[in-house]
Amino acid sequence: MRKVSIWEVLFVPLFFLLIVYPVLAIIGNVTMEGMIKTFDDPIFWDAVKNTLVTAFFAALLGVLMALGFGYFYIFHPGTIVYKIADFMNDLPIALPHTVAGLALLLAFGRNMFGFIGPTGLAFTLVAVVLAMFFVSYPLAARTIASAAEEIDMEQINVARTLGDNPQKAYQRVVIPLLGEAIFSGFVLSFSRSISEFAAVIMFGGNVPGMTQVLASYVFTKVEEGEVSMAVTASAFCILLSLMLVVILRMREKLHARSAESA
């Protein structure tokens, strides 16, 4: 009989108790009544639409910015811009997201951006995108920078001798080679965006039908005492997250298989 390690004894019960059990607690508490009420609620579908649209644009912006960071990483790693950007990549990870939301509110709210409207950019869908972007961008930047690290610099040097300036070499040689990392960065950024609550609620607000996203919908339903609706919306979120994880894993497997055949 196989001898069980102390690490297995430690890991298995804690994993099931602290990770799997809470997820099952949501699924197990979904009721038919809660499902009917939630799926009949147009505000829920607005929150779903808002979540998907804003997370998509936040991830898109995140990947574009991350590609810019990758350019600095490859061509200007000694510059002050790169060093600040590299340092700041870790900031949103350590920062409480309420603080991030407040920072965005002060930077883009009515005080500084009052010329746009009475609240500046705050409490609009743009604010939701910016809040999601602020917390998810580092994931895309890290993913792309670590993939860029793997690229053979000689390919870039050769492209330069064949007439490419740094921008052309980046677009024609580096970006195609970063394809997999761009996809992973997008999915990770999108996943992080749909789960964001604190920064979104601080800067984007929680206006049902307007800036409310799934995370804030769940919060509102709990506050209103509509627990069965909160549970249904949460189960929907879990399903969405699982789908993203499955997509990412399938893509990773496909990539590994094609790399093996190469």
Partner: peptide, 20 residues
Amino acid sequence: LPPEDRRIGYVPQHTALFKH
């Protein structure tokens, strides 16, 4: 001059062909 303006044909070690 930057590399792109020198017109030097360069063949590196390990060839550095564009994989894609």
